[in-house]
């Protein structure tokens, strides 16, 4: 099984520790994982802003970079959901080599561990209270947890993994999967509403009594961390892979 790590542009630049933890986590589960060099962007920001055509060359680049891997795994739910949903109609596929297109081989990291690796045990300890941030694309497109709108039994892949961490206390905000207001270009174009949504969401997390907000999307966490710093609040964000590899 050849596995590649997909580190989206902004994670690569701003949160190298998330990439590092992703690598360490997969290795600790016995997976041989590679990082194809010089990855940039999957094209999601352009597409969500209405310029899918601009995402096309980026999509083609991604397909080439990851052509030789059985699984491609990334610590960012919304980027992965864009590749999975957007690429099939953006990139032409020639199935002559019999390899499925990237959309069919790409996984969000927690999803991959939960659905494919299925470990009994995760070697991590984190003696803190955390509130899970169920990000929109993770929930409603990738199915990382049961969307609150639907009448289906509750499940959460993030919670299932976190429960394997020693010492952790897990919470969820009252509005368990309400949008935090990041939304890519939305954060700039609609900055007033986006800021208000961020403020409300962070406070919903705070009222659980948690010390950390954790989730599978660094973009939402970046936005909320920005709100936290601006307002000087007593909570921090931490990507879920950092907790799944923690020893504290």
């Amino acid at each position: 099984m050849k596995v590649a790590l997909f580190i989206p542009c902004y994670v690569n630049v701003l949160y190298p520790q998330v990439g590092e933890a992703s690598y360490r986590l997969l290795r600790s589960l016995g997976i041989d994982v590679d990082y194809p060099l010089d990855q940039t962007c999957c094209g999601q920001p352009m597409a969500n802003a209405g310029y899918e055509a601009d995402a096309k060359p980026l999509a083609e680049r991604m397909e080439r970079l990851f052509a030789d891997y059985d699984y491609v795994v990334g610590p960012s739910a919304s980027c992965v959901s864009f590749v999975r949903e957007g690429y099939p109609h953006l990139v032409e596929h020639h199935h002559n080599d019999g390899r499925p297109c990237l959309a069919e081989r790409i996984y969000e990291l927690c999803e991959f561990i939960h659905d494919v690796v299925k470990p009994e045990h995760i070697d991590a300890s984190f003696h803190h209270k955390v509130s899970i941030h169920n990000s929109c694309h993770g929930v409603r497109h990738l199915g990382l947890s049961a969307p609150s709108e639907l009448n289906i039994p509750y499940y959460s892949k993030l919670r299932a993994l976190l429960e394997k961490v020693e010492g952790i206390e897990i919470f969820e905000p009252q509005r368990r999967d309400e949008c935090c207001g990041f939304g890519g270009m939305f954060a700039i174009e609609e900055s007033a509403v986006s800021g208000c949504m961020g403020h409300d969401k962070v406070h919903d997390h705070i009222s659980t009594g948690a010390e950390y907000i954790t989730g599978a999307d660094s973009s939402c966490l970046m936005h909320m961390q920005g709100v936290i710093e601006k307002e000087g609040l007593a909570i921090r964000t931490k990507h879920i892979v950092e907790i799944l590899t923690a020893n504290e």
Binding site: I7, V13, P16, E20, L37, S191, S194, Q225, G226, V227
Partner: peptide, 22 residues
């Protein structure tokens, strides 16, 4: 910077994952 209306910018004080890997 419109981003800063309601939030602080993230911190750009580290090397990229790509560089660290290399």
């Amino acid at each position: 910077n419109p981003w800063c209306e309601a939030r602080e910018m993230p911190h750009f004080d580290t090397k990229s994952f790509n560089t660290l890997w290399k």
